[in-house]
Design a protein around this nucleic acid. Sequence first.
DNA 1: TATGAATGAGATTTCATTCAT
DNA 2: GATGAATGAAATCTCATTCAT
Lengths: 212, 212, 212, 212
Amino acid sequence: MEKITGMEAAHEVPPKVLLIYEAVEKLIASGEDINSVKVSTITELAGIGKGTVYDYFENKDEIIACSLLYQIKKLTEGLKEICSEKEIFAERVYACLEEIQKQSDKQQCFLRYVHVMTANSGYCQLVRDKMKQKEFEQYLPKRVFEEMTMDGIERGEIKKTILPEYVIYAIFSKLLTYMISVNACETMRTGSEKLRTYLYQSLLDELCEKNV
Amino acid sequence: MEKITGMEAAHEVPPKVLLIYEAVEKLIASGEDINSVKVSTITELAGIGKGTVYDYFENKDEIIACSLLYQIKKLTEGLKEICSEKEIFAERVYACLEEIQKQSDKQQCFLRYVHVMTANSGYCQLVRDKMKQKEFEQYLPKRVFEEMTMDGIERGEIKKTILPEYVIYAIFSKLLTYMISVNACETMRTGSEKLRTYLYQSLLDELCEKNV
Amino acid sequence: MEKITGMEAAHEVPPKVLLIYEAVEKLIASGEDINSVKVSTITELAGIGKGTVYDYFENKDEIIACSLLYQIKKLTEGLKEICSEKEIFAERVYACLEEIQKQSDKQQCFLRYVHVMTANSGYCQLVRDKMKQKEFEQYLPKRVFEEMTMDGIERGEIKKTILPEYVIYAIFSKLLTYMISVNACETMRTGSEKLRTYLYQSLLDELCEKNV
Amino acid sequence: MEKITGMEAAHEVPPKVLLIYEAVEKLIASGEDINSVKVSTITELAGIGKGTVYDYFENKDEIIACSLLYQIKKLTEGLKEICSEKEIFAERVYACLEEIQKQSDKQQCFLRYVHVMTANSGYCQLVRDKMKQKEFEQYLPKRVFEEMTMDGIERGEIKKTILPEYVIYAIFSKLLTYMISVNACETMRTGSEKLRTYLYQSLLDELCEKNV
DNA sequence: TATGAATGAGATTTCATTCAT
DNA sequence: GATGAATGAAATCTCATTCAT
């Protein structure tokens, strides 16, 4: 049988593979360490036979890598959806920050993304390799921010002095700040609500024309 | 024998343990995944017997956790040193960005730090637990940034509207954005030099009083 | 459905079973180890469904055993054909040696035959059991050599001092020596052509009356 | 730890490895199929831990291949020993035939040798590759026959018309005939005793000067 | 004290066989 | 009848940890 590559569109994913992806997602959400999760734990949670995963995936690293790519795809789709509901750049940014905080699952996903980008484990390298493939480009969260920026520039919402390609770094960096702060908020005296508002404002100050 | 706790001052670390720490550092620097590094690989590189590590450490997680804490200690000391050579907040921030890029080993160390803060592996939890202990507080890189910030506020270099506790996250997230971009996005259109300048500028814009 | 027993005459073999037999033959010829060949590899090569073989065969061992019996049947038929074209014992022996070298497929088949007679794997025992059955006697290569010998004795071509039952082993062992030498000893100093001539001559010297 | 290559001299073989070799030998002697023998069966019989074999061998195929090479080494040494006790070519040949029949273990070993030379399994290919290495040349049974022949030619025991390099094939072929016949002797009317005598005589007739 | 050979629990992976379609 | 996705028992292999030397 043809193996899963992680490049499949959401509707192309076979039902059993979906069960696997969902099992991995649940395990991550429940705080398990992906690296030390057993294949048998995944299959048990997915309610399928242990051998079945090997019909679809080459090995354990592929299982995890493809599961993460699926989560990234879903995140991207979620953000696309959210952005399509807003018209103004500022609102879109805020909606993203809001969305990410609202759903703790997606928080995990975002942190996972950072984790993956900074690690050398077998599956992390694999995820990065797959993300670099042309086929996957359309599923990158980066794309959402890029489009958001293009629109913003076109409408004159974003400062003319800013290099368009930096906008994405600015947004990314703020999101990162937010995520880390929220994650570390036990030790932070300020609430996440207040912080979000502050971050949102400082991001807009940095990127947007004042009168907008 | 009393086991190593990771709270030891640099000069208290026994010579064999230092060999272990250095071996782990080399392995990380060479791109190995800490999680899947074998104890025997570490001891071979350290040039000591496999059983010896168990004279000093309880188990593998402790070996890795303490090695990382040692790296964090060294990073903190390095940053302290750098900051002590500069007087102005802006210069200090820039020196940190510069220092980190200059030394790829420290890049790895920084990313490793982030990785540890966002993962759930046995050793990551351990590192976090140990970092929360009072004894370790003095070795936290956060402290460097906090002191830098305190100084900056005192001297009026930093905007008054900014939440003091937020400054550290802002610096931290800029560093992270830079690291991830440089590390993961070889496909980046802009050079890392230019990106560093941009991030540095945007950070100062955000944090500092304009006339400074 | 009635399962295949391996005793079927060539024209009784169902078309799907023939596809299976041919697939196994190809795999052996291509240097695969029968023992470690997967059922799925056989069915894929045969171009049939994996479940289909279990309509015809009890289990994997039966698949392989019957495939080999089929090859033995074909070998026997081939040798019969060749012998029927020659009248003299010496010529028949030479023709067999020649035939076997000419067709590398049959070389493989001959070696496979030896392999099966000297191994203890499940399928080997099975092949031997089936070969001992009365129904299969007519398909044994041994029969060709026996008849060849009977004819030779009758015509006074073979030495009278020789044990008749030994003749077949003598022929067989020369063939085997030749096959093993050609197959395994690429480092042989003498060419296979010369070796064949030598073995042929020594066999005739041993078995035949000198003036013949 | 440095892995076993199969090229070790008998006295260099570590004690645990010797236990493994002996276990494999026992399993073969007891009629087990090497291919389907489990690693755990070997280690249990050897009385060592399952993981221990992987300290010495790369994988299962290496375990089996090296065990067989060890048997070949022992066979060669045994034959060398026997030959050193006889002075005349004819006696040496006879002693070899006798020795091989006397020890059923060595019969197994001889058939195993044929098996290995005619199969494509992972371990068979491995054995052949290792036998071709220069380091192993000294342990090949072929060497015993070659030396036997050199001596025989020097002493004028062997016919001058015979190519020296064929003598080994003649001996090998007779041994093979004998082994196959004995193995198949259930169906043979003549006893192995009588057959041996006959084979011995025919071999001497073929190779030796008549007056010797 | 230091060692590294030995261990075995437990992980990954394979693949013959089944059975719903 | 034919299929091939699904299974899970059983195999191979790993490696943290122990302990005799």
